[in-house]
Amino acid sequence: MGGDRLAEVLDATYDCLTRFGVRRTTMDDIATAVGMSRSAVYQYVRNKDDAVRRVAGRLHDQALARAEAVASTELPPADRVRGILQAKLDLVLALAGASPHTAELLDAKARLYGDICTDFTTRLRQLLAEVFTEAGISTVEPTEAADIGIALVVGLESTHDARRLLGPATEALLTGLLGAPDAAR
């Protein structure tokens, strides 16, 4: 039961963040959104900062779990790279699309959750490097290839048609790093 109520508190926190942003959200807002007293909310989170940090962590953990799941499959390396990059792009587009305020949860320089963002990117980089190592790329170091892949997604994040462009952009990247499309599979 406690886990369910915590999830409700975090869901309410996310709802408040979409409406008000990190700075303007209050514990009263969260309590009202979840339908609890403020003192009851404190049974699940220490304070607003804790609630916001947990929301950021949950969102990044869910995206990372998707990336790790695809990375651990027996799919060809090109498909695993696509899946890992898709997990990053999906997180960004979901947060940016929900509200201009929720995009704040992607800020690696944020005091409350910047380390969560940084750790997420670091882990994606490791997953990509592992796949590139397994694929035996020789054009660049696997960690450099991973950095290029992440930079590709970061570049797409600000385009209006990012989902559609991820496919062709990833194909071009993989062709350059892994060789002809047939060889990449």
Score class of each variant (00 low, 15 high):
R53Y: 09
D90I: 01
A7I: 05
S158T: 13
T175F: 14
R58Y: 06
D15F: 15
T139Q: 10
R111A: 09
T175I: 11
T102I: 04
L10D: 00
V92M: 11
E141F: 14
A110R: 11
D79W: 12
D4F: 13
I148T: 12
D182C: 10
R38L: 09
I30C: 07
Y44H: 13
T159S: 14
I148M: 15
P77M: 11
Y44N: 00
S39F: 15
A96T: 12
V154I: 09
Q126I: 09
R164H: 14
I30L: 07
G136V: 05
D79Y: 13
V154L: 13
V34P: 04
M36L: 15
A129T: 01
D28V: 15
E141C: 07
T175P: 10
G155H: 05
R80A: 04
G35W: 13
A180Q: 13
E104L: 06
R19T: 08
G57I: 01
T25I: 02
L10C: 04
S138C: 07
R185I: 08
A51G: 03
G114L: 07
R58K: 14
A56F: 09
A98I: 07
G179R: 02
G136H: 03
V140W: 08
R164F: 15
D29Q: 09
A129G: 01
A108W: 07
D147A: 12
G3C: 00
T133A: 12
R125I: 00
I30A: 02
R38C: 09
L91D: 00
V154M: 10
A129E: 01
A67L: 08
T121N: 09
D15A: 15
G167D: 14
T159V: 12
L128Q: 04
R38V: 08
L6D: 00
A146H: 05
R58T: 03
E130T: 14
A151Q: 12
R66L: 13
D119M: 04
A69G: 06
T32F: 10
S158I: 14
R23H: 12
L173Q: 05
E171V: 11
